[in-house]
Simulated assay, not measured.
Amino acid sequence: MPSTKKTLHFISSALVTAIAVGLLGYGMSAQWAVIKMDCARGGSDLYNGSADITLGLFNGILTRTSCPVFGNVDSFEVITVLMKTTDTVPAVLQGLVVCLLALCLLFSVGSILISLYNSVSNPYETYMGPSGVYAFSSLSACGGLVAVIIFALNMILTTMAETLVENFSQSIPLDLRNKRTVADVGLYLLIPYIVLSLGAIGCIYAYQSAAYTHKREQQRPTEDAPKDIMMF
């Protein structure tokens, strides 16, 4: 059986990762960004309309005012709508974000299982030991960070928002400008997810560091003994 100290450290790691999974699961179902744009009919200099997009990973809501007609609210599936357009880059990037986060969930579950296994047994230093927690938690943190970067680039550098608005314009040409993007709760929840994934690594590292220090202290009396006594 493992020591009480080891059990506590590995259970703490599993608990921290479980909280991270809960945050990520909620974040994936929440809204990720709000995008606002000024709108005018094609060829007109009068930007008296607006288009607001509340965007999640899977679904979104588009609210239009005089863009091109007054008072339209449309719900849509993000990737489905984007795949119908000629520019598939936003759809591919959105799908990549979803896939990365799904992998993050899988890696986090793997970290939890390995931590729980180590809390009740003494496995060898293999992928089922601390190195497994390091690997899975590191992949979770890195995957979450890459997902944040890709999502932000998709919002800022591509014409994803404009494409979504034009898809519901009933084939009426539009001019869109002054795009403003504000991050929402789903995107923000990835930050504590990344921090908690790294925290799980910290729990295991603290145990290994304490175990190594204890081992060195046990060896020190022999190392510090006088040479003549050691020879005797």
Rank of each mutant, 00 (worst) to 15 (best):
L189N: 05
I149R: 01
A161R: 01
V146R: 00
F168D: 11
L145P: 00
L145A: 15
V185I: 15
N178H: 13
A147M: 05
L189G: 00
N167Q: 13
L145D: 02
L187H: 04
L176I: 00
F168N: 03
V165I: 09
E162W: 03
N178P: 06
L145M: 08
S171V: 11
L190F: 08
E166T: 04
L187W: 13
T163V: 07
A161P: 08
N154Y: 03
L174C: 00
I194R: 04
F168V: 13
L174Y: 05
N167F: 15
L153V: 15
I194T: 08
Y188N: 07
V185P: 04
L187I: 09
E162M: 01
Y188H: 13
A152S: 14
V146A: 05
D175W: 10
M155N: 14
Y188V: 03
L157F: 15
E166W: 03
A152G: 14
D175C: 10
R177N: 13
I172A: 11
M160V: 06
V146F: 12
N178L: 01
M155R: 09
A183V: 10
I149F: 05
V165Q: 00
Y188K: 09
D184C: 11
V148L: 08
T163I: 04
I149D: 04
M160G: 02
I194C: 13
V165K: 01
A152Y: 09
A152C: 13
G186S: 07
A147T: 04
L176Y: 00
M160K: 05
V146Y: 09
I191A: 12
V182A: 14
G186I: 06
R180N: 12
L164V: 12
F151N: 01
L187C: 14
P192Y: 01
I149W: 00
P173Q: 15
V185W: 01
E166F: 00
A161Y: 04
Y188I: 07
L189F: 06
R180E: 15
V146Q: 05
A147G: 05
K179I: 04
L174P: 06
E166Q: 08
I172R: 06
L164P: 02
L176E: 05
L190G: 08
L187V: 08
L190W: 04
D184F: 14
L190E: 05
N178G: 13
T163K: 02
I156R: 11
D175V: 13
R180I: 13
L187F: 15
T181A: 03
S169F: 10
L189I: 07
T181F: 05
V165C: 09
